[in-house]
Lab assay of single mutants.
Amino acid sequence: FACQWLNAHFEVNPDCSVSRAEMYSEYLSTCSKLARGGILTSTGFYKCLRTVFPNHTVKRVEDSSSNGQAHIHVVGVKRR
């Protein structure tokens, strides 16, 4: 389900990036709304992400508004 969900909601775009945590959060929200069992852990979800978008990269984005915490963004992917 996770791989199908990724294909339905995201697409390849080399000029874009999406927060990896936001992607997983949206996946969890969809699973909750659909009352799905067998929800992937974040590790399983990221493995699926690598399968669906094998050419993506990740980058660390520093967020000055959150006490220097960094966010991981998936580069080469955008929301549909």
Results as ranks from 00 to 15, higher is better:
residue 2 A to D: 03
residue 23 M to G: 00
residue 44 G to R: 14
residue 75 V to M: 14
residue 77 V to F: 01
residue 54 P to C: 03
residue 39 I to Y: 13
residue 13 N to V: 14
residue 8 A to E: 10
residue 37 G to Y: 10
residue 31 C to D: 07
residue 23 M to W: 00
residue 52 V to P: 01
residue 24 Y to N: 01
residue 62 E to A: 15
residue 72 I to W: 11
residue 14 P to Q: 13
residue 61 V to S: 11
residue 46 Y to P: 01
residue 50 R to L: 13
residue 58 V to M: 12
residue 71 H to W: 10
residue 70 A to F: 02
residue 58 V to G: 14
residue 11 E to A: 06
residue 12 V to Q: 15
residue 74 V to T: 03
residue 21 A to K: 04
residue 8 A to N: 11
residue 21 A to Q: 15
residue 61 V to N: 08
residue 7 N to M: 03
residue 5 W to S: 01
residue 49 L to E: 00
residue 34 L to Q: 06
residue 36 R to I: 03
residue 30 T to M: 11
residue 52 V to M: 05
residue 62 E to G: 09
residue 12 V to G: 14
residue 40 L to G: 06
residue 74 V to N: 01
residue 44 G to N: 15
residue 56 H to F: 12
residue 10 F to T: 01
residue 16 C to L: 10
residue 55 N to S: 10
residue 27 Y to T: 00
residue 32 S to M: 05
residue 29 S to N: 04
residue 3 C to K: 01
residue 3 C to Q: 01
residue 56 H to W: 02
residue 75 V to C: 07
residue 7 N to P: 02
residue 3 C to A: 15
residue 11 E to M: 07
residue 33 K to P: 08
residue 40 L to T: 11
residue 18 V to C: 11
residue 34 L to H: 14
residue 28 L to G: 07
residue 31 C to Y: 02
residue 36 R to G: 14
residue 49 L to V: 13
residue 54 P to L: 03
residue 58 V to F: 03
residue 70 A to C: 08
residue 35 A to H: 11
residue 27 Y to L: 00
residue 33 K to E: 13
residue 58 V to H: 15
residue 15 D to M: 06
residue 31 C to H: 13
residue 25 S to H: 13
residue 51 T to M: 13
residue 69 Q to K: 06
residue 46 Y to V: 08
residue 73 H to L: 09
residue 51 T to G: 12
residue 41 T to I: 05
residue 20 R to Q: 15
residue 65 S to K: 05
residue 69 Q to L: 11
residue 28 L to C: 07
residue 2 A to M: 03
residue 40 L to F: 04
residue 64 S to T: 05
residue 50 R to S: 10
residue 53 F to I: 00
residue 58 V to Q: 12
residue 8 A to L: 07
residue 74 V to R: 01
residue 54 P to R: 08
residue 47 K to E: 11
residue 72 I to K: 05
residue 15 D to V: 07
residue 71 H to E: 14
residue 33 K to I: 04
residue 11 E to Y: 05
residue 74 V to W: 11
residue 13 N to W: 07
residue 69 Q to W: 05
residue 18 V to S: 11
residue 44 G to F: 04
residue 52 V to N: 13
residue 39 I to E: 15
residue 56 H to N: 03
residue 45 F to W: 09
residue 54 P to I: 06
residue 26 E to Y: 07
residue 5 W to T: 00
residue 77 V to K: 00
residue 53 F to K: 00
residue 47 K to Q: 09
residue 44 G to W: 11
residue 39 I to D: 07
residue 48 C to V: 13
residue 53 F to A: 01
residue 1 F to N: 04
residue 37 G to H: 10
residue 54 P to E: 09
residue 15 D to P: 05
residue 50 R to M: 09
residue 31 C to S: 13
residue 71 H to N: 15
residue 32 S to R: 12
residue 14 P to R: 08
residue 55 N to Y: 05
residue 63 D to E: 02
residue 80 R to S: 12
residue 17 S to G: 04
residue 14 P to A: 10
residue 61 V to R: 11
residue 25 S to T: 09
residue 14 P to W: 07
residue 70 A to P: 14
residue 33 K to M: 04
residue 21 A to Y: 04
residue 57 T to M: 04
residue 15 D to Q: 15
residue 10 F to R: 00
residue 1 F to M: 15
residue 66 S to V: 02
residue 50 R to T: 11
residue 4 Q to W: 13
residue 7 N to C: 08
residue 48 C to Y: 07
residue 22 E to M: 05
residue 26 E to L: 09
residue 44 G to H: 13
residue 45 F to R: 00
residue 41 T to N: 11
residue 35 A to T: 08
residue 31 C to F: 06
residue 21 A to S: 12
residue 45 F to I: 01
residue 36 R to A: 14
residue 38 G to F: 05
residue 60 R to L: 13
residue 1 F to E: 14
residue 68 G to W: 07
residue 26 E to H: 03
residue 5 W to E: 01
residue 10 F to E: 01
residue 16 C to G: 11
residue 38 G to K: 04
residue 75 V to L: 13
residue 39 I to M: 14
residue 7 N to T: 03
residue 25 S to C: 11
residue 2 A to I: 06
residue 15 D to A: 07
residue 7 N to L: 09
residue 31 C to A: 14
residue 41 T to V: 07
residue 48 C to E: 08
residue 69 Q to M: 10
residue 29 S to G: 12
residue 20 R to S: 12
residue 74 V to E: 01
residue 51 T to C: 12
residue 46 Y to S: 12
residue 25 S to E: 13
residue 3 C to G: 01
residue 33 K to H: 10
residue 71 H to R: 13
residue 54 P to V: 08
residue 24 Y to L: 05
residue 10 F to K: 00
residue 70 A to M: 13
residue 36 R to E: 12
residue 7 N to K: 08
residue 15 D to C: 03
residue 12 V to I: 10
residue 72 I to V: 11
residue 41 T to M: 09
residue 19 S to D: 11
residue 61 V to K: 07
residue 69 Q to E: 13
residue 21 A to M: 06
residue 12 V to P: 07
residue 69 Q to V: 10
residue 32 S to C: 07
residue 17 S to R: 03
residue 9 H to D: 02
residue 24 Y to P: 00
residue 15 D to Y: 05
residue 49 L to R: 00
residue 11 E to L: 06
residue 70 A to D: 05
residue 64 S to F: 11
residue 58 V to L: 02
residue 19 S to H: 15
residue 66 S to R: 09
residue 1 F to I: 01
residue 30 T to P: 02
residue 25 S to K: 04
residue 72 I to Y: 06
residue 25 S to G: 14
residue 36 R to C: 08
residue 30 T to E: 12
residue 39 I to F: 12
residue 35 A to W: 07
residue 17 S to T: 07
residue 32 S to G: 11
residue 34 L to F: 08
residue 66 S to L: 06
residue 75 V to W: 09
residue 15 D to R: 05
residue 65 S to N: 04
residue 34 L to E: 14
residue 47 K to G: 05
residue 15 D to W: 04
residue 27 Y to S: 01
residue 26 E to M: 07
residue 53 F to E: 00
residue 67 N to K: 14
residue 23 M to E: 01
residue 22 E to H: 15
residue 16 C to N: 14
residue 25 S to Q: 13
residue 27 Y to W: 03
residue 67 N to L: 08
residue 9 H to I: 04
residue 40 L to W: 01
residue 48 C to I: 05
residue 17 S to E: 15
residue 14 P to G: 05
residue 18 V to R: 02
residue 31 C to K: 02
residue 69 Q to I: 10
residue 37 G to P: 08
residue 77 V to I: 14
residue 52 V to D: 00
residue 18 V to D: 01
residue 69 Q to A: 14
residue 47 K to V: 06
residue 19 S to F: 07
residue 69 Q to D: 05
residue 19 S to E: 08
residue 69 Q to C: 07
residue 47 K to C: 04
residue 63 D to G: 13
residue 38 G to Y: 12
residue 14 P to E: 04
residue 42 S to T: 15
residue 29 S to Q: 08
residue 2 A to F: 01
residue 3 C to L: 06
residue 17 S to W: 05
residue 45 F to D: 00
residue 51 T to H: 13
residue 58 V to R: 07
residue 26 E to R: 03
residue 21 A to E: 13
residue 7 N to S: 12
residue 17 S to V: 10
residue 3 C to V: 02
residue 77 V to T: 02
residue 12 V to L: 09
residue 32 S to T: 11
residue 65 S to W: 04
residue 54 P to H: 03
residue 26 E to C: 05
residue 8 A to F: 07
residue 53 F to H: 00
residue 34 L to N: 04
residue 56 H to Q: 06
residue 47 K to A: 09
residue 39 I to Q: 15
residue 46 Y to W: 06
residue 70 A to N: 14
residue 33 K to A: 09
residue 33 K to G: 07
residue 17 S to A: 15
residue 35 A to D: 14
residue 22 E to Q: 04
residue 20 R to M: 05
residue 30 T to K: 15
residue 56 H to M: 14
residue 77 V to S: 00
residue 24 Y to E: 11
residue 70 A to L: 08
residue 30 T to L: 10
residue 28 L to P: 00
residue 21 A to H: 02
residue 11 E to H: 05
residue 27 Y to F: 10
residue 21 A to I: 02
residue 69 Q to H: 02
residue 52 V to S: 08
residue 21 A to F: 08
residue 25 S to V: 08
residue 16 C to D: 02
residue 48 C to H: 04
residue 67 N to E: 02
residue 13 N to S: 09
residue 7 N to H: 05
residue 56 H to R: 02
residue 19 S to P: 08
residue 11 E to S: 09
residue 37 G to L: 04
residue 77 V to C: 04
residue 36 R to N: 07
residue 70 A to E: 13
residue 50 R to P: 12
residue 8 A to Q: 11
residue 35 A to F: 04
residue 14 P to S: 14
residue 26 E to D: 03
residue 24 Y to A: 03
residue 30 T to I: 01
residue 8 A to R: 09
residue 48 C to G: 03
